[in-house]
Nucleic acid binder design. Sequence first.
DNA 1: AAATATAATGCAACCAAGTTGCTTAATTAA
DNA 2: TTAATTAAGCAACTTGGTTGCATTATATTT
Lengths: 125, 125
Amino acid sequence: MGVTRQTKQVKTLLDIFNTENNAISVADLVKKLSGQMNKTTVYRILDRLMEDGIVHSFVGKNGLKWYAKCQGCSCDAHFDVHPHFQCKVCGEVSCLTSSFKIPEVKGYKVDAVNLLLVGTCSDCL
Amino acid sequence: MGVTRQTKQVKTLLDIFNTENNAISVADLVKKLSGQMNKTTVYRILDRLMEDGIVHSFVGKNGLKWYAKCQGCSCDAHFDVHPHFQCKVCGEVSCLTSSFKIPEVKGYKVDAVNLLLVGTCSDCL
DNA sequence: AAATATAATGCAACCAAGTTGCTTAATTAA
DNA sequence: TTAATTAAGCAACTTGGTTGCATTATATTT
């Protein structure tokens, strides 16, 4: 599970994630790479990169799926989940470094958290 | 803005929200009401009910849109936002009563929060 | 109560995100 | 270098959601 071959396409994707600080929506990736790469391929590589713990994914404010490079976030031990911030003006999404403790809820077993802050980023203020 | 006429369809929707405690996905609503009501109508009524502050909406773990009746939650003054819980076994989504203070983030102006807890509900444990 | 203005519904067509099955091509291991 | 196997490409499809426009229902006015 998650033994990713070093294909040209995988390298392209990895390169994007390594040079880009912010999160990227799959839709944007597909658009940006259209012509270079099939959209199915993009989806499948992202799946594999996530299994390998290279990237993590989450859902943006309008239901689109976003990916960002994992940097020190333990994606499996989901207990230092970080929030994400989405600017409603420019649409940029970034990982916030401030970690966040999972709230306890009586009667429920919580094992993942999706915390999305929506607002205006410093550039758009 | 938000002056909703009391049509048969609106009453049907309101009735569903008043008898259902949990949140409902739009997709489910459309399915449940197919034959009774056009899907466009469902989407539009939900929009209006939200403008009126009758229901609030949020995004589930797989990007689907969910709605739930507002009960005492001030949907416009987004500062007593409540979290939502989605059970990954049965799929049910419910509003948690525990309120939640919006975290401060330096440089950003945060005005909405989407906090989704994913796990296993008491029925599925 | 009837007429009018206006808001809401239905319909069909559309768009975009994401998925599936299958064939072909590219890695990696032998 | 060949063989085993993973990954890429393609096309077709599914699903959630939207749009424009014609028709119908609700409120309002007289």
